[in-house]
């Protein structure tokens, strides 16, 4: 499972980076979304992916014995997903506005503010 997740996260990062480097603005925000998904899955993997070890303390014990599936990263991801959603929504509106004012979807055309 860990190997599979590692591969998946790697593919997400690679494709996210590739999309960010494309010239089209639409692909740019798809890339940004993929990058944030990759980060979220990475945090998820950090929680120890196991089905048989819930984070519950046995009656006979006083502390959690490792390894156990940590619930905290899932809470973190939930926060990150909500933030990511808001950011994606903003980015979508923004590229629409950029397209309206500049009339182009090509990032190479947007170079007048560079130095």
């Amino acid at each position: 499972m860990n190997t599979l997740m590692a591969l998946l996260i790697g593919i997400l990062y690679a494709s996210g980076m590739y999309m960010v480097l494309r010239r089209s603005m639409v692909k740019l925000i798809i890339g940004l979304a993929l990058l944030s998904h990759a980060a979220n899955l990475l945090i998820f993997t950090m929680a120890t992916l196991r089905r048989d070890r819930p984070p519950l303390i046995d009656e006979s014990e006083t502390a959690l014995a490792a390894p156990y599936a940590d619930p905290v990263p899932q809470a973190l991801i939930l926060t990150a997903i909500v933030i990511g959603f808001a950011v994606s929504a903003f980015a979508a509106i923004m590229i629409h506005r950029v397209y309206q004012t500049t009339g182009t979807d090509d990032l190479d055309q947007l170079h007048t503010t560079d130095s």
């Binding site: 996210g16 940004l32 990058l35 944030s36 990759a38 980060a39 979220n40 990475l42 945090i43 993997t45 950090m46 929680a47 905290v72 990263p73 973190l76 990150a80």
Partner: peptide
């Protein structure tokens, strides 16, 4: 995104 990934790894 990089900060978030670093954070996740540090938590792990």
């Amino acid at each position: 995104a990089i900060f978030l990934a670093a954070l996740g790894l540090l938590y792990g």
